[in-house]
Design a protein around this nucleic acid. Structure first.
Length: 627
RNA sequence: GGGGGCGUAGCUCAAUUGGUUAGAGUACCGGACUGUCGAUCCGGUGGUUGCGGGUUCGAGUCCCGUCGCCCUCGCCA
């Protein structure tokens, strides 16, 4: 083989006159009969090759005949001489000033007619085809860019944490099943009949135990597995940058991670991340109705319960009756929330606001009250449509409570705190999209808005089971000042338990959670209390987590950590909203790999070896269908 | 598990209200062509309209089912 001496992205005017060898794929060909141009492609770029019948080197009919047969995606090796382009330069290519006159041609591998061209300028074929022939799709320069961007991210990550004294430690993939939280993938065990491993949802417990083991600062770029339905930004198999530190408080983690974020954005995007603001969970819920506020646009939600109580409107009154005796911010206490939409009087049509009523019903709310603020005949503000007649008598107080001005529309949600907040928070995002208020993502020139969200509740009620579940995970510590109240709290005292604040923290970027973590529990008694609250008996807690409880009893240092969703970071840097674009070999919505056709059946012998038998029965062929 | 979208030539798409032999571009095959860079020009091959059933004189089009892909709710400690 004519092994390359240069790559296809490398040749410049400085190479003119040199004899070079190139290897690569035929990207395109332009056949003029006695003159043939080939754009040769490799990962590094394109170089134009020329086959010229009158050229001395190509006098042999043989090489022209071979060149004549070349087609896109053939793999070839050539030797030739670099020269200035005779037909003028191509400003689109970095190599556009030169071409290589081919003296020797070797066809390394003739291609079958490919199902599609790996061409970034052409319309992409449907994703199914791209995934089936992933090796062709990955040849596209933009996909090569993703792979190298991802690699640079790994490298920057490891450098930063190495410089800060972290040690990368691998943790097991075959792990113990702990069926809380996400559904696990399970793996049958051959050696102990009837038992199974699980694939880790995250290395959470191992990294804590590494702290007990004195590792002090741990990091790992690790694969995590969750057997839940994917989304555009979720895969069953994904990658985390997993971190843990000993002898630190929340502030230390925040400082270390801000340094990391700053370093990453500097290296990956040339962007200097300013000091990241912090917002409490409660503030986020109050102003934005969501725990990961998108602060790129200024739509605010206001609690107007006090004002609403003065309005003679049954929907408001009815809502405010709910959970009257419960403390403020309690999930079951009734509230009225308002969102002022600047310019909404013109931009939000009746059809849209009717749609919003339907939209919020999906989140359990009864509907949305709407009022437009328009210019009255006297030139002052006049309320119009919807619930205007209820508000008109208290117009002044209404304008003051909501800050609404002429031209605005105000949307209301009235229900329990949990329902009203969620509904109007979701609505806020929808209205922002409808109004065109959402800037492009950062990678496309939009702003990068970072935010720490802190002081999450420890627990929330599962709507279906009525049981407490950990909002982050069961190993999250209460905030220091909450510890006493937490240890004293009665499991039955719902309002108190709902109010316990954890030492958790998330990093939110443009309304998307990119990292989440917490100070961990390092005291067995506190951990046992959490398990108790979550409804685990001491026996079952011991059965599932004895190794953790034991480890905590043998000198566990205070520790805290965080994990970044690596795939989402890459998505931000390359500017895609499709997680499959940043994973070399991703899976479909049913967890299938279309290229290898995984998952697949295994022979019965393989099943019996691991002591399992599938209960699945194929549906009868040719069954009569109704209709 | 629920809701929605899509599925027509290798690929990207079109096909009026249900109406003649399902078209175009591109790819591919053959031919012409010495300065192209989305080469150009001429000709050609290529279709179980995802699959199964139904309604109809007639189905790519309507109905039912099913498969695949995508979006989404639930779910994601």
């Amino acid at each position: 083989m004519l092994s390359r001496t240069v790559t296809c992205g490398q040749i410049r005017e400085a190479h003119i006159g040199q004899t070079v060898r190139l290897n690569g794929w035929v990207n395109s060909y332009r056949d003029h009969g006695n003159l043939i141009f080939i754009d040769l492609r490799d990962r590094y770029g394109l170089t134009q090759l020329v086959f010229d019948k009158e050229d001395a080197h190509n006098a042999q009919a043989e090489i022209m005949a071979m060149a004549d047969k070349l087609r896109s995606e053939d793999v070839i090796a050539i030797e030739g001489q670099v020269r200035t382009r005779i037909g003028g330069e191509n400003p689109k290519l970095p190599t556009g000033k030169v071409e290589v006159v081919v003296k020797l041609l070797e066809v390394l591998n003739k291609t079958s007619n490919p199902p599609f061209q790996p061409d970034d300028n052409a319309a992409l074929p449907n994703e199914e085809l791209r995934l089936t022939h992933r090796y062709i799709d990955l040849r596209r320069p933009s996909m090569q860019n993703v792979l190298t961007a991802r690699h640079r991210l790994y490298k920057a990550t490891r450098s930063y944490f190495d410089e800060n004294g972290f040690t990368e430690v691998e943790t097991p993939i075959l792990y113990k099943s702990t069926p809380e939280g996400a559904r696990e993938f399970i793996v049958p065990c051959r050696n102990v009949p009837g038992t199974f491993y699980a694939l880790p949802q995250s290395p959470q417990l191992f990294k804590q135990i590494l702290m007990v083991a004195g590792v002090d600062r741990y990091m790992q770029i690790c694969r995590c597995f969750r057997d839940e339905d994917p989304r555009a930004d979720r895969q069953p198999e994904f990658t985390q940058i997993d971190l843990e530190m000993s002898f630190v408080r929340r502030e230390h983690i925040i400082e270390m991670m801000e340094g990391f974020v700053r370093r990453l954005w500097q290296e990956m995007a040339g962007y200097a991340v300013p000091k990241i603001q912090q917002m409490s969970y409660r503030q986020a819920m109050e102003d934005y109705g969501i725990d990961r506020p998108d602060t790129r646009y200024d739509l605010r939600i206001k609690d107007i319960s006090v004002f609403a109580a003065t309005v003679d409107f049954n929907v408001f009154k009815g809502a405010l009756e709910k959970g009257k005796d419960r403390p403020a911010f309690n999930s079951k206490r009734g509230v009225v929330k308002a969102m002022r939409v600047p310019g909404g009087a013109e931009k939000l049509t009746r059809k849209m606001t009717d749609g919003y009523a339907e939209f919020v019903k999906g989140f359990g709310a009864g509907g949305v009250a709407v009022v437009k603020v328009i210019k009255g005949e006297d030139g002052g503000a006049k309320l119009d449509t919807g619930i205007a007649k209820f508000l008109e008598p208290v117009k002044g107080a209404f304008l003051e409570a909501t800050g609404a001005q002429i031209g605005d529309t105000v949307l209301f949600a009235a229900d329990t705190y949990a329902v009203a907040t969620k509904a109007i928070g979701e609505l806020r995002q929808k209205v922002a999209r409808d109004m065109g208020m959402v800037p492009k993502p950062g990678a496309e020139g939009g702003p990068w808005n970072f935010l720490w969200v802190v002081d999450f509740p420890m627990f929330e009620k599962n709507k279906e089971t009525g049981k407490w579940v950990a909002m982050h995970h069961p190993f999250t510590s209460p905030r220091d000042d909450q510890m006493r109240a937490f240890l004293d709290a009665d499991v039955e005292d719902e309002d108190t338990i709902e109010g316990i604040v954890s030492a958790g923290y998330d990093i939110v970027l443009n309304g998307q959670e990119i990292a989440g973590g917490s100070v961990r529990i390092h005291d067995g008694a506190v951990q046992s209390k959490v398990f108790k609250l979550l409804g685990l008996t001491p026996e079952s807690a011991r059965e599932k987590f004895s190794f953790l409880l034991e480890a905590l009893s043998f000198g566990a240092p205070p520790h805290a950590g965080i994990a970044f969703g690596l795939d989402r970071l890459v998505m931000n840097f390359v500017g895609t909203d499709n997680i499959r674009d940043v994973i070399a070999f991703p899976k479909t919505q049913i967890g299938a790999d279309l290229m290898t056709k995984a998952p697949s059946q295994v022979p019965e012998k393989s099943q019996s070896e691991v002591h399992i038998k599938s209960t699945w029965v194929p549906p009868a062929k040719g069954a009569v269908q109704p209709g």
